[in-house]
Amino acid sequence: MIWFTLLLVVLVLAALWASMTTTLLRSTLGLALASALLSVVMFSMGATLAAVMELSVCAGLISVVLVSVASLTRPRSIQEELASRRSRLRRIWPLPLVLIAAGVALSFVHAPVDIVLHLPKGDGDVRTVLWSLRQLDLFGQILILLAGALGVLVLFRKEAKDDD
């Protein structure tokens, strides 16, 4: 139980670090770390397939995509970097504080929740799930990818034009 809690705490810290650090690359690193830890959590709860997907797609593929997109961006100048560092605490201190406070408050709320873990019906075969049950969602995700690609096309062409 203790390892589990420790795992969750480190996961949250990694996520916090990812959102508060000032460099894009460090942020990506933090995300990859958090995803990896999440896949460990999933594995330890018995969802092997989900853990594998999480590790390969999120920690792996997404980080690669993020890093390659980040390479298209202009690195920050020293002044921007310093200014960002100075102001970041001021900008975002309420958010994590509030979240933690809310979490603590909610934990005192005695919501008598009966959690019954329903095991997924049918065979847990990934192929069946993806191709026959959730085709629509797959289609949706293809669309998001398409939109994302269009976005990259647009925004970076625009950046390039603006820089000229």
Binding site: R134, L136, D137, G140, L143, I144
Partner: peptide, 9 residues
């Protein structure tokens, strides 16, 4: 869930 996906799209 599909609702969520298409909202994201």
């Amino acid at each position: 869930f599909s609702l969520y996906v298409f909202v994201e799209v």
